[in-house]
Nucleic acid binder design. Structure first.
Lengths: 165, 165
DNA sequence: AATGATGGTTGACAGAATCAACGATTGAGT
DNA sequence: ACTCAATCGTTGATTCTGTCAACCATCATT
C-alpha cells in the first residue's frame, strides 16, 4: 500500500482518495498538515507525562531566560497572562521551575528552571528531536538548512510581533 | 545533532530580547510560528464572517468531493464525527452546503456544496491567497516552488495517515 | 499623598475536542 | 430468513483551553 513518491495522478490524498481541491495550492495548508502531525507525534510520545499544552515551550523559555517575568513569558509564548499563571503553577507543582519575588520590583515574579526542570527539559528536547527526525530524514542536510533559511525569511515579515509558539 | 551558530549574534527574538534556547533548533517550532501567524491573519481577515474553526476546510473538501459522506469528511479534515455534525449543521444553516440521503446506503449523508457555497469558497480562497502573499513575497518563485517540494517530501513520511488539516 | 500604570491572580464564560451511548441501517454468516 | 456485528449520523456529558473583566499589591510620576 505504498504511494509512490513523485507525481500524483491527481491532487488527492493517496490512501483515502479524497481530493483537496484548491486547498492544495496553499503553503499554509502544507505547513499545518506537517505541523499537526509533528505535534500529534510529540503528544503521543509524551502522553504518559500529562503535559498540558504550553508547558513545554514555557519551560524552555524560562530555562533560556533565567529570571524572566510571567508577563514577559506570556508575550513570548503568545498566551494570556492568566494561562501563564496556571502553567507556572503547574511547573512549580512539578518542581520544574520556581517563582522568586524580584528584589528590585516586588510585583514581579522572577522565574527560574530548577535542576530537575533542566533535566526534564533535556528529555523533552530529545523526544522532540526524535519525533522530528522521523519526518526530516526525508531531507538532506543541505535541504534542511535551506528549509530553515526559507522559513526564517518568511517569518521576518513578522519581525515586530511576539513569538507566538 | 549539533547546533550550528546561525547568522544572528545570539538566538534571541529581535524585538523582545527573549532567548529561545534549544527551541530554536527545531523545525516544528519554525513551522508553527509561521502557521500561527498565517491563521491569525486569516482569522482577522475573515472575522466578520464568524467562521467556526474547521468550517473553511470542510467546505473546501466537500466542494472538491461532491457526495462525500460525513464520516469521510471527518477523517479528511482530522476532526471527530461529532464535530463534523456541527460543522455540517452550520454549513447547511448558511446555505453553503446540503445533505442528501444516499440512495444506495440510507445511513449515509451525501454532502454537496451549494452554488453560494462555491462562491463563498472562492472568496475565502482569495482572502487566503492574499494573506499568504504577505508572507510569501519574501521568496522568489523558484524558492517558493522549492519550499513546496520540500514540504511535500516531508509529508510523504506520513503516507498512510489522514490529511489532518 | 494622589493618581495612573503594571504584574500577578482569580473567576465567569465561551469554543472546541474527546468520549460513550444511541437509533437506524447495512452486510455477513448461518 | 434470522441473528449479529459493524457502520453512519446524532446527541449529550465531560474536559481542556483560551478570552475577558475585575481585583489587589506594587511601582512610577507628579
Amino acid at each position: 500500500m505504498k504511494r509512490v513518491a513523485g507525481k500524483k495522478p491527481d491532487q488527492d490524498n493517496g490512501e483515502s482518495g479524497v481530493r483537496l481541491g484548491r486547498l492544495d495550492e496553499f503553503i499554509g495548508f502544507r505547513l499545518r498538515r506537517i505541523q499537526n502531525q509533528l505535534s500529534r507525534d510529540f503528544a503521543a510520545a509524551t502522553a504518559e507525562r500529562n503535559l498540558r499544552s504550553g508547558l513545554f515551550s514555557s519551560l524552555a523559555i524560562v530555562a533560556a531566560n533565567p529570571g524572566i517575568s510571567q508577563n514577559e513569558l506570556s508575550r513570548a509564548v503568545g498566551l494570556d497572562k492568566s494561562i501563564t499563571v496556571q502553567i507556572v503553577d503547574d511547573l512549580e507543582g512539578r518542581d520544574l521551575a520556581r517563582r522568586e519575588r524580584s528584589p528590585t520590583d516586588r510585583r514581579r515574579h522572577a522565574l527560574f528552571a530548577t535542576e530537575s526542570g533542566q533535566a526534564y527539559l533535556d528529555e523533552l528536547f530529545d523526544t522532540l528531536a526524535k519525533t522530528e527526525d522521523a519526518v526530516l530524514h526525508q531531507l538532506t542536510k543541505a535541504e534542511l538548512a535551506l528549509l530553515r533559511e526559507l522559513l526564517d525569511r518568511m517569518y521576518e515579515a513578522y519581525d515586530e510581533q511576539g513569538i507566538t509558539l
